[in-house]
Write a protein that binds this DNA or RNA. Structure first.
Lengths: 143, 143
DNA sequence: CTGGATGCAAAGGTTTTGCACGCTA
DNA sequence: TAGCGTGCAAAACCTTTGCATCCAG
């Protein structure tokens, strides 16, 4: 278990990992690319993607899957819940402890269930402020 | 609440909704497109996407954002949990009742949490059989 | 009639990949 | 040195969109 898929710790891989751990924003690949480029101006976005894949298979980072839009990445691999902003897709960390989810009594035809997790959603402060700003006369639905 | 965004029930929209309700597979947009094309050979994929959007805003179908590279859709809007196959992304329905998730004590800095749901994952029978077939000499991890 | 909906095709955004060269172990 | 990793660019994917035309109400 937790097989290492790759052996070499290149400068690029090291810095990608460092920057991802530094960021608390659960960045998308290209947000991380921007951060890494400050230290390695010639790195390519493809390298960022390739390394995020490798690091994820090595269990060193988390790939937060969300269909369709952009994937986000997390350098903090301790078990914790996430919130996703339903407006902009930003992801935050939930402070509460994770509770063990009992999967033993759960059944779905055609599937063998191995686990589960809780996904929270909400609105981030940035979107909430924009929302307030754009309707000065009270709540009245989507613009 | 449950505002209708559109007024016209076109042949296309009607058939898209019918076919999605018929399918129990939580299809991707283009899987649904294939199904609909049997009845409307000249429909375009763009129309399928546009209608899925409208139907989703009307609350008539569910857009599953959970994971994978493609979004999946569900014609069954009753509250129920889903399982997702970690190998192929297929989605199935969980038979257990949904339990109310208490969100009141949950906090995440920078976010206003409005809800949450449980996401199960596992392996679907199709992938499990392929797995068995491709390693005739016992379990030994990824190939 | 009228404006929302369609078909077609092109554009858009994100992620993956082929290739020749570079660099870690 | 060997061969994994890189940069670059093109391709692959999925989804959205502009536009002229069509059709449901």
């Amino acid at each position: 278990m937790a097989e290492q898929r790759s052996q070499r710790m290149t400068r690029q891989r090291k810095i990608i990992l460092e920057e991802l751990r530094k960021l608390k924003t659960h960045p998308t690949a290209d947000e991380l690319y921007d951060a890494v480029r400050e230290r390695l101006p010639r790195i390519s976005l493809g390298t960022v993607y390739r390394n995020l894949d490798v690091l994820q298979e090595n269990g060193e980072v988390l790939k937060l899957e969300s269909a369709g839009s952009q994937k986000r990445f997390d350098g903090d691999i301790r078990p914790h819940y996430h919130v996703r902003c339903v407006r902009c897709g930003r992801v935050g960390d939930v402070e509460n402890e994770v509770a063990d989810l009992d999967v033993s009594g759960v059944s779905a035809p055609g599937f063998t269930i191995t686990g589960g997790t809780v996904e929270f959603y909400g609105v981030c402060d940035i979107c909430r402020n924009q929302e307030k700003a754009s309707r000065p006369d009270g709540p009245q639905g989507r613009q």
